[in-house]
Design a binder for these strands. Structure first.
Lengths: 131, 131
DNA sequence: CTGTATCCAGCAGGATACTG
DNA sequence: CAGTATCCTGCTGGATACAG
């Protein structure tokens, strides 16, 4: 079974010019996908997001939101009220990205057991396999 | 447009028991997807992989291959020859994973320009937006 | 050729304190 | 409420040397 994403055809690589690496590097961090996923249900405020995720620090949430906004995955709307109110919403680009990520997430859910089983059964090779 | 991967429904989260986070953490590192992608074209030896990828260190290639083998994404076959010869091949699990990753990679390719454009147009909010 | 062991620098990211 | 600034630690991953 041959896939069509061999590097020669897709241009994948660790070059900075590689689109896939660029995108993957940005959303492949600890929090980005999580934030996007939480926003898939609808607009949320900063504190709502923080409380929903639970174990993200204020610093990382802020930083992650900036990065996602910067790349166009979500939009930020600040109301000039006191106290301030800021809402974050997925853009069309963000939604479209999530739609592609979803199958991968579902796959992970379905196949996690297999991975765990493989890990359990795994015996590391004895440094330049004998026999 | 509502996606079906809202955390409440998928169970995504940063818990260690979260299947998606577990899988994503393992393949979301610097090299795993790249190695898998290169193997999608067929079986490769250690040095072939290293030369193909180019800028991966021996240490990271070895480490990445171990990790992927451990999780069942690829299989390792060592020939007891001198000098040693070791071949790496995708398993069914690895191929199945790559099939889900591919759409994401293609999306990245197609939408990279939009991301770059968003970055270019981006102006950071002035710390608690005025107006 | 196919690795492992060691050392080390850079950076992601947590805790905390402070501001508009 | 919604952040930014500072400090500090651990891990990722590169370079190098060595081994089967």
């Amino acid at each position: 079974m041959k896939l069509s994403l061999s590097p020669a055809q897709t241009g994948i690589g660790y070059d900075k010019n590689c689109p896939m690496r660029d995108v993957l590097d940005c959303i492949g961090d600890r929090w980005s996908l999580l934030v996007l996923a939480y926003l898939s249900a609808g607009t949320l405020r900063f504190t709502e997001l923080k409380r929903a995720i639970g174990d993200i620090s204020q610093r990382m949430l802020s930083q992650t939101l900036r990065s996602l906004e910067r790349d166009g995955y979500l939009s930020r709307h600040a109301y000039p009220t006191v106290p301030p109110k800021v809402e974050y919403t997925l853009t069309a680009l963000g939604t479209s990205l999530l739609e592609r990520v979803e199958p991968l997430l579902l796959w992970a859910n379905e196949n996690h057991a297999k991975v765990l089983k493989a890990r359990e059964a795994y015996v590391p090779p004895p440094a330049a396999a004998p026999l």
